[in-house]
Simulated scan of single mutants.
Amino acid sequence: MNSDHQDPGTAPDATAEPATETPTGRKGRFRRRPGWQKALIVLSVLLVVAVSGVVGGGYLLVSRYSGKVDRAALLPSVPAGEAEQSKENWDSGALNLLMLGSDSRATEPGGTSPIGERSDTIMLVHIAKSRDKATIVSIPRDSYVDVPAGGSWKGGKNKINAAFAFGGAALTAATVRKLTGVPLDGAMIANFASIVDLVDAVDGVNVCVPYDVKSTFSAREWKQGCHDMDGDVAEEFMRQRYNVPGGDFGRIRNQQLVVKAVIAKVAKNNMLFKPLALDSLLGIAADSLTVDENLDLRDLTLAVRDIRPANITFATVPYASSNLKTPAGSAVDLDYDASTAMFAAIKNDTIDQWLLANPDSTASN
């Protein structure tokens, strides 16, 4: 576990993982299912929905399941002018959605969470005004930022994932809004299912790894190259943080590799044109999602129906150091100038041009 000193005013770090954790129950299934795996369900199914909008049956299936997902107040209240602008964005503007994943100890994703629970995955999904491309930006969970007052937190500097511990999704959204300056048009959080279910639903994936990864949970090792993975193996691969280049940043990269493999498998097998297969994928989503009370999934389907997998870009917020010493323990020090420019590009709907001009921002299609 994380041995960093914790200030009395901060929650204990529930995101660290012991290298000795072992599988239990179903072969390869781990005792504690991290929130970032659950967020991958949200992300993957969002992308599935994105490319299924062109299928007549896809829209009908979204309508069928939209009433089955859990709903909660995931976003804080905003000024009337910003709320009106968001309505206009859904009609004809660029959209920015917050995507979160956490462990399942909270009784209410939109409310105050027990101390110790943190959001292991924080993603900002930007859908271009042209509605034919999207950028998914990962915000490192240990980023040291200003967390506004909320819940049991009086406000001040802390790791960004602590916001969920003190004030749930709404405080996390307020923190992301403060950090990025980007108004949020919707929010989602994953709560039950794992990436295991989605990978198994597509009958496994082929993941191409650009580096060697050695498991800390078993004797498995993934050499540079492409590997077939079922749900259990994909879960184990994505949990690696010690024997992967970049630590947590490498783990983010591994998550993205699996998500892209899922999308490729869905496209290759034309699953979106097969009602039973699409029904299964959306069923997983319905069991996994909590969405903001004001988010209409049918509107989201219409907004992203022209996006193709090749036009989805992943990126990570630039950082200056991953070992910043703080009262909350070792944290990530974001690169102020580069991250500010990235956030401005998201807000101005020019993020694709910014990424082209800044290839070191760990972007990939």
Rank of each mutant, 00 (worst) to 15 (best):
E82T: 15
A83R: 13
A83L: 10
A83Q: 15
Q85L: 08
Q85T: 11
S86Y: 06
E88M: 13
N89I: 00
N89A: 03
W90F: 05
W90V: 04
S92K: 15
L95Q: 05
N96A: 07
N96V: 04
L97V: 01
L98G: 03
L98S: 01
M99H: 02
L100Y: 12
A106D: 02
P109I: 02
P109V: 00
G110K: 09
P114C: 01
I115L: 13
E117G: 01
R118P: 05
R118V: 11
S119A: 15
T121C: 10
T121Y: 12
I122P: 05
L124E: 00
L124G: 08
L124I: 06
V125R: 05
H126T: 01
H126V: 04
I127K: 07
K129M: 12
K129Q: 15
S130E: 15
D132V: 11
K133Q: 15
S138I: 04
P140D: 00
D142Q: 11
D142W: 09
D142F: 08
S143N: 08
S143C: 03
S143H: 10
V145S: 06
V145A: 05
D146Y: 12
V147W: 12
V147P: 09
A149F: 13
A149K: 13
G150C: 12
K154G: 12
G155E: 12
N158G: 11
K159P: 09
I160S: 04
N161Q: 02
A162M: 07
A162W: 09
A162G: 07
A163E: 13
A163M: 10
F164H: 14
A165H: 01
A169T: 02
A169K: 02
L171P: 06
L171E: 09
A173I: 06
V176S: 06
R177Y: 03
T180L: 03
T180C: 05
G181D: 11
V182P: 09
L184W: 11
G186S: 03
A187Q: 10
M188S: 00
A190E: 02
A190Q: 07
N191Q: 14
F192Y: 14
A193D: 08
I195G: 05
V196E: 14
D200R: 05
D200S: 02
V202M: 08
D203G: 08
V207F: 08
V207C: 03
C208S: 14
V209H: 00
Y211D: 02
K214C: 01
T216I: 14
W222S: 00
G225V: 12
C226L: 03
C226F: 04
